[in-house]
Amino acid sequence: MTVDETPWNAFVAGDNLDVLPTLAPGSIDLVYIDPPYNTGNDFAYRDDIRGDESLSRHEAWVAMMRPRLEAARVVLAATGAIFVSIDDHEAAHLRLLMDEVYGEDNLLAQVVVNLNPKGRQLGKGFATSHEYLLAYARDARRCVLDASTSDTVDERDFPLVDAEGRRFRHLPLRNTNKKFNPATARTLHFPVWGDPVTGTVRTAPFEGAVEVLPVFGDGTPAVWRWSRPRIDERPDDLVCRTINGALGERVDVFQRDWLHRDTPGGRRKKLRTIWMAEEVGSTDTAVAELKEILGHVFESPKPTGLLLRILQTMPSDARVLDFFAGSGTTGHAVALANAADGGSRTCLSVNSTEPTRVGSNARLAGYATVADITRARLRAVAERVGGGFVDLTPSR
């Protein structure tokens, strides 16, 4: 990294409610936070509600979160998005709060994340094996988030291979959704001509061809997924075949759907709303990641795989903010993502100076505050992965 380049990771120790107003409005593309889960223990961020016994546990938590989410909305770009991790204790309250602050029309997804595949075995009741991830856009109409990934594309779904070794599969050219039919998509119901012997498909008659109209399996009229001009542009990506349908033998047209591994970015697949531990990591793998760098100094960190998946939904130059930075997973993932794809993402991590527990592994390892853990991890990541690190904490 040259002197003129912006470090991938920056850090501020302090109350996030003090730090957020210092950031320029619209200066952040992606926010990820993993706030306190309100499991019954006191949390560090009490603000002016400290000592207000009239508030229930849930009300106190919401009162703590509201101004922080409102401040985060101000610094989020119009094209940006925010992801919030939460568990069952406050999932319902957080959903309502996010609807209020960001607008229910800007909800992108409520993802179930399988962070504990074995399930929590302590206590009574079910063995909980999941948490939630709420994703909201600043403005869903302008958001640049791409809810897809190349990680879940399986080559086995593309069983055919052409003479050049490129893998593909056949997809019906007709639209299989009955909502789309000659009444609702009139211009896409037209004949094409195909030769089931050679496979050739054209929009005009040719020798050896038969007329093919789009129909559903029951013989009712359907429509094509491609327009005439698109068929004329890409005739070699279509093939005519004789198939055995429910009503007997018929001629149909199929698209050669290519795997295209060699294209920039590779083929992508829409993200599901259940993310399994084998895809994004688990609490156990997260503990192991942190232990390898700093030792066992944080009880429930998030795995970098979870953050890497979130980062994949945004451009590779995204400006990222995590104002409940915890062990520093978000900054770690930003460095890993940049190193992997040559991106120029930057991350600002903010964490409180909450004291570590007396007698805890963190305290015994010399970390007096949680912020000390975040800072140490990001420094270690800069040394191991690259990208640089800057501590922006104001000197006292």
Score class of each variant (00 low, 15 high):
residue 202 R to T: 14
residue 202 R to H: 11
residue 202 R to A: 15
residue 203 T to Q: 11
residue 203 T to A: 09
residue 204 A to H: 10
residue 204 A to I: 14
residue 205 P to E: 07
residue 205 P to N: 07
residue 205 P to M: 01
residue 206 F to I: 15
residue 207 E to W: 03
residue 208 G to Q: 06
residue 208 G to E: 04
residue 208 G to Y: 05
residue 209 A to C: 12
residue 209 A to F: 01
residue 209 A to Y: 02
residue 210 V to G: 04
residue 210 V to I: 03
residue 210 V to N: 03
residue 211 E to W: 00
residue 211 E to C: 08
residue 212 V to E: 05
residue 213 L to K: 08
residue 213 L to H: 09
residue 214 P to E: 04
residue 214 P to V: 13
residue 215 V to F: 12
residue 215 V to D: 06
residue 215 V to I: 11
residue 215 V to E: 09
residue 216 F to M: 06
residue 216 F to Y: 15
residue 216 F to S: 02
residue 217 G to R: 01
residue 217 G to N: 06
residue 219 G to L: 04
residue 220 T to P: 15
residue 220 T to Q: 15
residue 220 T to V: 13
residue 221 P to Y: 12
residue 221 P to V: 11
residue 221 P to L: 10
residue 221 P to A: 14
residue 221 P to E: 02
residue 221 P to S: 12
residue 222 A to N: 15
residue 223 V to S: 12
residue 223 V to C: 13
residue 224 W to K: 04
residue 225 R to Y: 07
residue 226 W to V: 00
residue 226 W to N: 05
residue 227 S to K: 00
residue 228 R to D: 00
residue 228 R to G: 01
residue 228 R to E: 08
residue 229 P to Q: 01
residue 229 P to V: 01
residue 229 P to R: 02
residue 229 P to Y: 03
residue 230 R to S: 04
residue 230 R to M: 06
residue 230 R to V: 07
residue 230 R to N: 08
residue 231 I to S: 09
residue 231 I to Y: 04
residue 232 D to Q: 09
residue 232 D to W: 02
residue 232 D to R: 04
residue 232 D to P: 05
residue 232 D to I: 03
residue 233 E to H: 04
residue 233 E to I: 00
residue 234 R to M: 07
residue 234 R to T: 14
residue 235 P to M: 14
residue 235 P to G: 15
residue 235 P to V: 15
residue 235 P to K: 13
residue 236 D to T: 11
residue 236 D to Y: 02
residue 237 D to R: 03
residue 237 D to M: 06
residue 237 D to W: 11
residue 237 D to L: 03
residue 238 L to F: 13
residue 238 L to Y: 10
